[in-house]
Amino acid sequence: MAKLGFLKAGKRWLGSPAKSASPQLHARWLTSRRDILRAQRLRCRTFSEEFGIRISPFGVDRDRFDRHCLHLGVEDRTTGALIGYTRLLPGEAARRLGGFYSRSEFDLARLAELPGHVVEVGRTCVHPNYRSGATIAVLWAALARYLFTARVDYLIGCASIPMADGGAGVAGIMPGLRERYLTPENLRVVPRLPVPAALPCETGGVMPPLLKAYMRMGAQIAGEPCWDPDFNCADVFILLEVNKISRRYRDHFMAKAG
């Protein structure tokens, strides 16, 4: 469940804090048990709403990878609310666990020999009341600072495409991704459960915001998507070579990160 959670703007959870009139957003690493629990609750709410499923009866999304990950959050200082999140699994931690999370969805054999420092990103989500460019910009700036200062060579992960339309959107989006962003053959992954065939929608499909952001940064897709029947979505494997992040994004994010 390497999901990227972005609900439609304007949707609110019952009992959740409203967006402040002048939010003051900042990113920080979440290290305490309390903060990580807050993040797990945000993840659970976001993914449950977006994919229309019940993840946990306890309102918490957690797995065995959490204790080995770095947790990055965005807070609104005016309310104290945690409103954005992503987690990072460094390669050395993944080796202790027997592999990256995305290994459960893809055969990563061809990426086993990637040189240097490889980090997996996942579980990215944003509170629906803060669904704006500002939140993701703050989160991405902190992520970029980590990538550069930790000398990360490759960022990997999964981006989800909803399949509530029966897969028509996926069928419409994938041709353009294959044409413009496909990795070389030696850097391809193989989905363990291919996406069922579907006719493309008339509009060609709308690329999810985070998938589009990855492509603009200079990322590539490493092959065909994997079908996640539990969430009824297609997961596309992302490969980003950090030293090839576009100059525009590098300058923008590093300026944001100070």
Results as ranks from 00 to 15, higher is better:
114 L>Q: 09
91 G>H: 05
68 H>E: 11
112 A>K: 13
238 I>M: 15
104 S>G: 09
246 S>L: 06
61 D>H: 04
247 R>P: 10
178 R>S: 06
85 Y>P: 10
41 R>N: 13
222 A>W: 05
234 A>V: 02
20 S>N: 09
147 L>Y: 02
32 S>M: 14
176 G>E: 00
109 A>Q: 01
223 G>Q: 08
230 D>Y: 06
146 Y>G: 05
52 G>S: 11
189 V>A: 09
203 T>Q: 14
203 T>E: 14
118 V>M: 08
63 D>M: 06
6 F>S: 06
135 T>M: 07
95 R>Y: 02
208 P>L: 08
132 S>K: 01
81 A>T: 13
7 L>R: 13
51 F>P: 07
105 E>A: 13
146 Y>P: 01
143 L>D: 00
214 Y>R: 04
63 D>V: 03
8 K>I: 13
5 G>V: 13
180 R>H: 11
178 R>F: 08
60 V>Q: 10
117 H>V: 11
257 A>E: 09
30 L>K: 02
71 H>G: 13
24 Q>V: 15
22 S>A: 15
233 C>K: 10
229 P>S: 03
124 T>V: 04
84 G>K: 11
154 Y>M: 03
5 G>F: 06
224 E>W: 03
76 D>A: 12
198 A>M: 00
162 P>A: 15
215 M>Y: 01
63 D>S: 04
249 Y>I: 03
186 N>G: 03
186 N>Y: 10
127 H>P: 00
98 G>T: 08
61 D>A: 04
98 G>R: 01
175 P>D: 01
152 V>N: 02
196 P>K: 09
164 A>H: 13
99 G>K: 02
175 P>K: 00
187 L>K: 08
140 W>M: 11
57 P>D: 14
101 Y>P: 10
108 L>F: 09
81 A>H: 13
117 H>E: 14
123 R>D: 02
54 R>H: 10
209 P>F: 09
122 G>K: 13
213 A>M: 14
228 D>I: 01
233 C>I: 05
128 P>N: 07
63 D>P: 00
125 C>Y: 09
18 A>W: 00
90 P>N: 01
91 G>F: 01
12 R>D: 07
170 V>W: 07
157 G>C: 08
66 D>R: 14
186 N>F: 10
94 A>R: 02
101 Y>I: 06
246 S>R: 15
63 D>C: 05
176 G>K: 00
52 G>H: 10
219 A>E: 05
228 D>F: 01
